[in-house]
């Protein structure tokens, strides 16, 4: 056999192995999600069956119908939860991004006393596990009357997300050459215009990715939300999942249906923003 053929075969074999490994990895990542979607469409008997039924033979929208139905028949205030989640996540994300942009820009561009210390300080707040804050937060919120309000959760999520957005956005602004802003200033911009017309658009992809992460963190957060919310007025969707547990039973099907409703907006958002993520920072403005 000649050498080229061996190499080509080797290449094919490697490619097959590669695809196989990817398939395994993707399965591990995706199957739980798919299982949730699947379960939301089939009756509880089939969900609980042992051994598991892999191929569904009785798909229906029953769980969804029940969920949107009257309170007594397994219905939960889905729309209210959804609105709560959306208001809380969007508001906290927007604010966390604005603060993150201001902070990240400052850390990336300016020199000031104690910069390294402040930066590490901010990062360390992230090292504290969120759950351990639940009791102190509960007390603070109770004293200030913010328990069971949108504002309370929004504040908590901003605090959780800001260190992260600062850190991420700082990294992106560092990659934007200082010369660009200087060139803009020479071209007649004020400092402020130079930021909005040049530095911000160039770092936009990075900022968008920070936004996704912040949004998903708030959207999916359960532990703190479950402590700080009480009523349908402020409960978010993850907390709403608990409505499906009663003293002796768990309505798995209903839970999965609500979970699917939770996943959909996150997926949509990720799809919208991923275009920017992939395009990455558009370089080429400077000779690197």
């Amino acid at each position: 056999m000649n050498e080229n053929l061996i190499h080509r075969l080797k290449g094919h074999v490697l490619k097959v192995l590669h695809l196989f490994a990817l398939f395994i990895a993707m399965s591990i990542i995706c199957i739980p999600g798919l299982w949730v979607v699947l379960n939301s469409f089939r009756p509880t008997v089939e969900i609980m069956a042992k051994p598991p039924v892999w191929i569904p033979n009785d798909l229906s929208l029953d769980h969804y119908r029940a969920m949107f139905g009257a309170a007594g028949e397994g219905g939960v205030p889905v729309l209210q939860y959804f609105t709560n989640s959306l208001i809380i996540s969007l508001t906290s994300t927007i604010i966390a991004i604005l603060v993150g942009m201001a902070g990240g820009y400052a850390f990336a561009r300016f020199k000031f006393r104690g910069k390294a210390g402040i930066f590490i300080g901010i990062m360390i707040t992230r090292a504290v596990p969120g759950v351990s804050l639940s009791l102190p937060l509960f007390i603070v919120m109770a004293k200030t009357g913010l328990i069971d309000t949108h504002l309370g959760l929004i504040l908590v999520y901003i605090a959780l997300n800001v260190p992260f957005t600062i850190w991420l956005i700082d990294g992106f602004f560092r990659q934007v050459p200082v010369d660009l802003a200087e060139a803009a200033e020479i071209d007649g911009c004020t400092r402020w215009q130079a930021f909005w017309k040049v530095e911000f658009p160039v770092a936009r992809a990075g900022i968008a990715s920070a936004g996704i992460f912040a949004f998903l963190t708030s959207w999916n957060e359960y532990a703190l939300a479950s402590q700080l919310t009480r009523s349908t007025f402020s409960k978010t969707m993850p907390v709403g999942l608990r409505d499906f547990t009663s003293e002796f039973t768990i309505n798995w099907g209903g839970m999965c249906a609500l979970a699917v409703l939770m996943i959909i907006p996150a997926l949509i958002l990720t799809f919208i923003v991923q275009k920017h993520l992939i395009s990455g920072l558009t370089f080429g403005g400077v000779k690197g």
Binding site: L180, V198, V202, R204, T282, G284, G285, V286, K287, G288
Partner: peptide, 10 residues
């Protein structure tokens, strides 16, 4: 004119 040109990449 900057050494690395500093063109606006976007």
């Amino acid at each position: 004119v900057f050494q690395n040109y500093a063109l606006y990449p976007h």
